[in-house]
Measured scan of single mutants.
Amino acid sequence: MQRVNMIMAESPGLITICLLGYLLSAECTVFLDHENANKILNRPKRYNSGKLEEFVQGNLERECMEEKCSFEEAREVFENTERTTEFWKQYVDGDQCESNPCLNGGSCKDDINSYECWCPFGFEGKNCELDVTCNIKNGRCEQFCKNSADNKVVCSCTEGYRLAENQKSCEPAVPFPCGRVSVSQTSKLTRAETVFPDVDYVNSTEAETILDNITQSTQSFNDFTRVVGGEDAKPGQFPWQVVLNGKVDAFCGGSIVNEKWIVTAAHCVETGVKITVVAGEHNIEETEHTEQKRNVIRIIPHHNYNAAINKYNHDIALLELDEPLVLNSYVTPICIADKEYTNIFLKFGSGYVSGWGRVFHKGRSALVLQYLRVPLVDRATCLRSTKFTIYNNMFCAGFHEGGRDSCQGDSGGPHVTEVEGTSFLTGIISWGEECAMKGKYGIYTKVSRYVNWIKEKTKLT
């Protein structure tokens, strides 16, 4: 034993070699072989497995989906700052455009905790909710729209109204504003409101030439003092309507412009014939205590009207009353817009006519005020429907199939267009061939041609 100890002390290297040989010859039971080890760690190889990531292109799944990435790591994937920024906006807080917040056709661009709407022409605001041009839906104005110097929408209202708090709607500024039905039992019968379409306001006024200088022999019209197929109006439903009495009662109609003036057809009036105007009328054979009678003290036909040349060209006249009318729910003026808007309103496509005229061709006159909704007829169809001249200051309205029309005794009465609950004068009943005849239409004086003249002559002093 002493000898062994001496050998170990003198030859430590020998001992180490012996131990190493023993270990190498022993069977290893701690580690699995290569094949079995792979069965336990069965993990798919990654895209760049075996390579240094710093030297390969980034992978979106590896960089940002398996674990949260930084902007720089995302930049490695896209290799483009702009594309990385677009991805980053949604990656950080989701897609803010998912709810489609942009209105009126706006395009949404996502941002971090926010979004941006790219608005089409005519709109602005956070969600493109603000109209900035009158060309689109009248700028959301209830009545009139004008573009300011910086191309912003400025709404306005006709006389007797003021802008509401929203700067879009119009509200009454006087007790009985024009064009409004205020009798409670008839307010439910107000005709369907007309909503502004998209309009090209630059070209809204037709490029028409008034044929002022045409000389033409007097034409022989049949029954051209021209509501057939209409309905009984309720008291106060058309408070701007008046009836004219002269040699015979209810020979023509008219509309209240203001307390002192009536507008009617020029062919209705004769110099030297006494005319009485009755406002607030409903049943011409009954006294309903809503009527107001006034005498006409002055007749002003349009300066281009000449019955000797043509009885229905420039067929418009103004009547001055001896005493002002007292405005109330049964006696209310009709609204008159400017030339541009009167023309736009007419193009809405349908209007209402009213009167006490004959209820059928050569038949009896109506006792109760009649009204009828009539569609506008395109000019080409209008011209083809008659052998008589249709001037540019006239328009056609009615039904091709016949059966409904204005008729004798309705002449001078109103053709009105309702705009968001307020009625505007767009025409004056003038003439036609018979009444409600198939293929024939009622012919009306186009008020847009005469609004400046009306307003100039009827100013209240």
Rank of each mutant, 00 (worst) to 15 (best):
H303V: 06
N59A: 09
S406A: 06
A9S: 12
Y47V: 14
Y341F: 08
V153D: 03
Q216K: 06
N452R: 13
E73Y: 07
T133L: 04
L130W: 07
T417W: 01
L32E: 15
E73V: 10
L383Q: 14
A233E: 05
V273N: 12
G280D: 01
L367Y: 10
Y161W: 10
Q90K: 14
P301M: 12
G432I: 04
D315T: 02
W88D: 15
Y201S: 06
Y391P: 15
V447F: 00
L20H: 02
G413W: 10
E418I: 12
V92T: 08
H302Q: 03
Q216M: 10
A164S: 07
E434K: 14
S25E: 05
I40F: 09
E27F: 03
E208G: 06
A317V: 04
D93A: 04
H302V: 02
A250K: 08
S25Q: 09
R298I: 01
A9E: 07
S107Q: 13
E53P: 08
E61A: 15
H289N: 14
Q241Y: 10
K457T: 13
N343P: 02
C268L: 00
L60N: 15
L376Y: 06
I428W: 04
I428E: 00
A173Q: 07
S411E: 12
M6P: 06
N5Y: 10
G427D: 01
N100R: 08
V56K: 05
N147E: 14
G179R: 00
Y371W: 15
D150G: 10
C102R: 00
F196W: 13
K459A: 07
L318W: 00
I316V: 09
I15K: 06
K387V: 05
A265C: 03
L130V: 12
F395R: 02
S406E: 15
I256C: 00
S430D: 02
S385M: 10
A164R: 09
T84G: 11
L41M: 11
K347Y: 06
I429A: 14
G230I: 14
V56F: 06
N147H: 11
L244W: 00
K109A: 06
E73G: 15
R83K: 09
H289E: 11
C382Q: 02
V278K: 06
V451I: 08
K45E: 15
R180V: 04
V451K: 03
K137I: 04
I316T: 01
L32N: 15
N113G: 07
F424Q: 00
Y444S: 00
K188D: 06
C157A: 00
A279N: 01
E340A: 10
Q167F: 11
Q185T: 14
G253L: 08
K455D: 03
Q216H: 11
G21C: 07
T458C: 06
Y161S: 00
A37E: 02
E27M: 04
G413N: 05
T458I: 07
N245S: 10
G230W: 14
Y22K: 03
K347W: 04
D410G: 06
E72R: 15
A380G: 12
C134G: 02
I390A: 08
E72G: 12
G363A: 07
G398S: 05
V277W: 01
H289F: 11
K45R: 11
V296I: 06
N310W: 04
D405V: 06
D212I: 10
V277P: 00
V359H: 13
K459L: 08
H314G: 04
D322G: 06
L41C: 04
C382T: 02
E434F: 13
M394T: 04
C170V: 01
G280E: 01
V326A: 10
L376G: 02
G105V: 00
G58Q: 07
E73C: 03
N113E: 09
I112Q: 10
I309S: 07
G355A: 14
F71Y: 07
I428N: 01
K126W: 06
G349A: 06
E420H: 07
L376N: 04
R162F: 07
N310R: 06
Q219W: 09
D378R: 09
V183L: 09
H267N: 04
W240D: 00
N306T: 03
L321H: 00
I112K: 08
I275W: 06
N38P: 12
G21M: 14
W453R: 00
E67I: 04
E288I: 05
H361G: 10
E281S: 10
M8F: 11
G229V: 08
K126Q: 15
L130C: 04
N222W: 08
G106Q: 01
N393A: 05
H34Y: 12
H400L: 10
T342M: 03
Q167Y: 09
S70P: 05
K293Q: 09
H267V: 02
L244R: 01
F221N: 09
T133G: 07
L52E: 15
N36G: 11
V4S: 12
A207K: 12
Q57C: 03
S169L: 05
E208K: 10
S204N: 07
S187A: 12
F224K: 13
I316G: 01
V451A: 12
V277S: 00
Q2G: 15
E208R: 11
C134A: 02
E116W: 06
G427A: 02
R83I: 12
V326K: 10
C155D: 00
Y341G: 04
A380Q: 08
F224M: 13
I390G: 09
G13P: 09
T84A: 12
P324V: 04
V331E: 00
E124W: 08
Q96L: 06
V183I: 12
L327W: 14
I284D: 06
R226T: 12
L325W: 04
N295V: 08
S169G: 08
D232T: 13
T81S: 09
I275A: 03
P197Q: 09
R3Q: 08
Y341E: 05
I309G: 08
A207N: 12
E129D: 05
G363C: 04
S220E: 12
F221A: 12
C102L: 00
R358F: 08
V174N: 06
R373G: 05
A164D: 06
E401A: 15
R294A: 02
T290Y: 10
G412Y: 06
F399D: 11
K387S: 06
L376A: 04
K457C: 09
A250S: 11
I316E: 00
L24M: 10
N104P: 00
Q219H: 13
A233S: 08
H415P: 00
P101V: 03
D410A: 09
R449V: 13
L211V: 12
N36S: 10
E79V: 14
R191W: 07
V77K: 14
E193M: 14
R364Y: 08
A308S: 11
S217N: 13
H415G: 01
F123H: 06
S217L: 06
H303T: 08
E259H: 06
V269Y: 04
K387M: 08
V277Y: 01
D131W: 11
R62P: 06
E129N: 04
R3Y: 09
S182P: 06
I336P: 00
A192V: 10
G349Q: 05
F123M: 03
E82P: 13
P301W: 08
W261Q: 00
R404V: 06
R404F: 13
V368E: 10
I15Q: 04
N343K: 06
C268A: 01
N213T: 07
D198P: 12
S329M: 10
E270W: 07
V416F: 10
L103E: 12
S107G: 04
L321Y: 01
P414L: 12
E159T: 09
N222A: 15
K146Q: 13
M394C: 04
S204M: 14
V273W: 11
G253F: 05
L20W: 09
V326T: 09
S423P: 02
G236Y: 05
V273C: 05
S107N: 11
L130A: 07
N213Q: 10
K274Q: 08
L244C: 02
Y450G: 01
E129H: 04
L367Q: 14
G229Q: 13
K137R: 13
N127L: 05
N222F: 10
W356I: 09
V263C: 02
Y91G: 15
E159Q: 07
G254V: 00
R358T: 14
K188F: 10
V242T: 03
D95L: 05
T225Q: 13
C407Q: 04
S169I: 05
V331A: 07
R46K: 11
L130H: 11
V248F: 08
N38K: 14
A149N: 11
V228S: 11
K362C: 03
G272P: 12
C435V: 03
G246F: 04
E116Y: 06
T186V: 11
I40W: 06
T417G: 00
H302W: 06
H303P: 10
C69M: 03
V374M: 11
E72K: 15
V278L: 08
G409D: 05
A308N: 09
F360M: 15
T389G: 13
V243M: 05
E434W: 11
F238P: 03
L103I: 10
